[in-house]
């Protein structure tokens, strides 16, 4: 078993009286793809924001490579090696695709030539080669998702946090994107993804964490988690696991009780 790269310890975030994330814990091992799933409103985005430094936790800690990074602001976490993408893609509209990626590349390269060359390489790796000179504002949704990925990758992260990079894509675009994510992992980058597209989670992830109502209710290999009664209940409502088990025993019986 490889060493843990990211350790989230009992993270809690309260907004006034609402507890968005309640003592959530998870560990991501180096070299793996981990998934974070959960029904809408489970607190995934908030947990993600706390890992990337965009929200300050009410309590708990985030450890990266054994170092406590809880107090670091977002830009310093990126410098430490944690990069993120946004669910709502945020291209720099006034810049070309290459210049967009270069903003990420500049993090570890001061010179324009090196940064642009690195931007080119990263852009090609995610399949943006033909569009490098186009204004970022003209990209399609699929193109923008790739650009979002490329920019984060250009910062040379050790851990890449992907916030629903497949949302809004059609099935064939999703099929094109999955190998891109796999190749990133093969390049030595550890990945944590928040995703709603279950087919992708099942095929990509080594380990899946399930958040429901702010709490971590299950963790483990994708198939085991999918069969977990607590997870079924969280997605399908109270009693769902029992009904599914019952209907599995009597295939002819009606689904609703």
């Amino acid at each position: 078993m490889t060493a843990p790269l990211l350790v989230v310890e009992d993270l809690t975030k309260r907004f006034g009286g609402l507890t968005a994330v309640d003592r959530a814990a998870l560990t991501v091992r180096a070299g793996t793809i981990a998934g974070l799933i959960g029904p809408n409103g489970a607190g995934k985005t908030t947990l993600f924001a706390m890992i990337s430094g965009f929200e300050t936790p009410t309590s708990g800690a985030v450890r990266f490579e054994g170092r406590d990074v809880t107090a670091l602001p977002a830009h310093q976490r990126t410098a430490a090696g944690i990069a993120r993408t946004f669910q709502i893609v945020q291209p720099f509209a006034g810049l070309s695709v290459r210049e967009n990626i270069a903003v990420g590349a500049y993090l570890r390269r001061a010179g324009r030539t090196e940064a642009l060359a690195h931007a080119d390489a990263v852009g090609r790796a995610v399949g943006l080669g033909p569009q490098l000179d186009r204004p970022a504002g003209e990209m399609t949704v699929a193109g923008r998702k790739r650009l979002e990925l490329a920019r984060a990758l250009a910062t040379d992260p050790k851990l890449l946090l992907l916030d629903e990079v497949l949302a809004g894509l059609n099935p064939s675009e999703i099929r094109d994107m999955i190998p891109v994510i796999r190749r990133i992992r093969e390049g030595g980058v550890t990945i944590l993804i928040v995703e709603h597209v279950m087919q992708a989670v099942m095929s990509l992830c080594d380990e899946v964490h399930v958040l429901a109502q702010g709490r971590m209710i299950a963790s483990g290999p994708p198939l085991a988690v999918a069969r977990d009664p607590a997870v079924m209940e969280a997605y399908l409502g109270h009693g769902a696991a029992a009904r599914i088990a019952a209907s599995a025993r009597n295939p002819g019986a009606p689904d609703h009780a």
């Binding site: 977002a74 990126t78 410098a79 990069a83 006034g94 903003v103 920019r151 250009a154």
Partner: peptide, 12 residues
């Protein structure tokens, strides 16, 4: 263009 996106890319 986008302050949050810039921060995410390590811009202080």
């Amino acid at each position: 263009e986008n302050e949050d996106a810039a921060r995410a890319l390590g811009v202080d």
